[in-house]
Amino acid sequence: MLHRFLKTIQAGKVQSLLEIARTLDLSPDMALHITNELTNMGYLKAVGADCEKPQTGCSECPTNRGCQVIVRHWFLTEKGRTVVSKISKAE
């Protein structure tokens, strides 16, 4: 299941959790659960997670609410890509 999840991301044909959920016959909640799990395991990394310290000018910016990530992204880490490549070779 998790291999297929990572392989689907690597294939690049789907780019949203909803599409992955549909492809793998999961609920969106479960797809998010798996994504968080894979992030904890180090196979995925969340984009924007480094935006964690107060920055100069942030408090003064009238639209700093925009700092809220409009849409959450995760990308396949080196570890993730390595494991997918291993699976592909094994297949």
């Binding site: 924007g48 480094d50 935006c51 920055q55 000018g57 942030c58 700093n64 990530v69 409009i70 849409v71």
Partner: peptide, 19 residues
């Protein structure tokens, strides 16, 4: 990916380039 963050505010987008 960080560029997309910039539509809200450029500051987190700059920080997002850490990936």
């Amino acid at each position: 990916m960080p560029i997309l963050l910039g539509f809200g505010c450029n500051v987190p987008a700059i920080l997002g380039t850490r990936i």
